[in-house]
Simulated assay, not measured.
Amino acid sequence: MMPRLPVPRGEPSTDLFGTLQREVNRVFDQMFGGMALPASGFAPSVEMRETEQGVVVTAELPGLEEKDVEVALEGDVLTISGEKKQEKSEEKEGFHLSERSYGSFRRAIRLPWPANPAEASAAFDKGVLTISLKRPPEAAAKVNRIPIGGTPPAG
């Protein structure tokens, strides 16, 4: 019998392989500080920063075009995937050189809260993908202040 994996919020329990993939991504992100391990020679650098409005994710995708990249949002998981194709052909006196390289990538990033896709935006400029996700009202930062004063508790 296969062990049961925890099911992330809002996901059907029938997607065992999807759940396994997300958990493996989460473990690698924790172990390697968000670095991607190359699936086939290409691992884009990804950075996530929190702002007052929400979260901004940037991914460096040199050599790619907007049509080569896909962005998806499902609950609190943002997925960036794509394929890099590079072809080089050179003809000189007496020889013909042709090189091709292909590499695909997929990064799944767990957000601090589920985001609304209708309030998300993405832009691609000069090989840099920037995704902005608005913080939902229920995820507003709450500060619980602890009063300071008096004598320390005995113990």
Rank of each mutant, 00 (worst) to 15 (best):
Ser81Cys: 07
Asp68Asn: 12
Val77Lys: 11
Val46Cys: 00
Val128Lys: 15
Ser98Leu: 09
Ala59Gly: 04
Gly103Leu: 01
Lys92Cys: 05
Ile80Met: 05
Leu64Lys: 06
Ile146Lys: 15
Ile80Glu: 06
Ala140Pro: 02
Gly34Trp: 00
Ser132Gln: 13
Lys126Thr: 07
Val46Asp: 00
Pro62Phe: 01
Glu65Met: 07
Ile80Leu: 08
Ala118His: 11
Glu99Pro: 00
Leu111Thr: 02
Phe95Ile: 07
Ala122Leu: 00
Asn25Ala: 14
Ala139Trp: 09
Asp125Ala: 12
Lys88Asp: 11
Glu52Met: 11
Ser101Asp: 08
Asp68Ser: 08
Pro38Gln: 05
Ala59Phe: 03
Thr130Lys: 12
Arg107Ala: 04
Glu47Thr: 10
Glu83Trp: 07
Phe105Pro: 07
Leu64Glu: 02
Asn144Gly: 11
Leu129Cys: 06
Lys126Asp: 12
Gly33Arg: 03
Ala72Phe: 04
Ala115Gln: 04
Tyr102Gly: 15
Pro137Gln: 09
Arg145Pro: 11
Ile109Arg: 02
Ala115Cys: 09
Thr130Ser: 13
Val56Met: 04
Met35Trp: 09
Leu78Lys: 11
Pro136Asp: 06
Thr58Leu: 02
Arg106Trp: 01
Glu93Asn: 12
Phe28Val: 11
Ile109Met: 05
Val77Gly: 10
Ser121Met: 08
Phe124Trp: 07
Val24Trp: 09
Gly82His: 01
Val27Thr: 12
Leu78Tyr: 10
Gly18Asn: 07
Ser101Lys: 07
Ala118Lys: 13
Val24Phe: 06
Pro136Thr: 01
Lys134Arg: 15
Glu65Arg: 15
Thr130Phe: 05
Met48Val: 11
Ala43Pro: 09
Ala140Asp: 13
Ser104Gly: 14
Gly63His: 04
Gly63Ile: 00
Phe42Gly: 02
Lys92Val: 08
Ser98Ile: 07
Phe28Asp: 12
Asn25Pro: 07
Glu52Asp: 14
Lys67Glu: 11
Gly41Thr: 02
Glu119Gly: 13
Glu47Cys: 06
Pro136Val: 05
Glu138Pro: 02
Phe17Lys: 13
Gly103Thr: 01
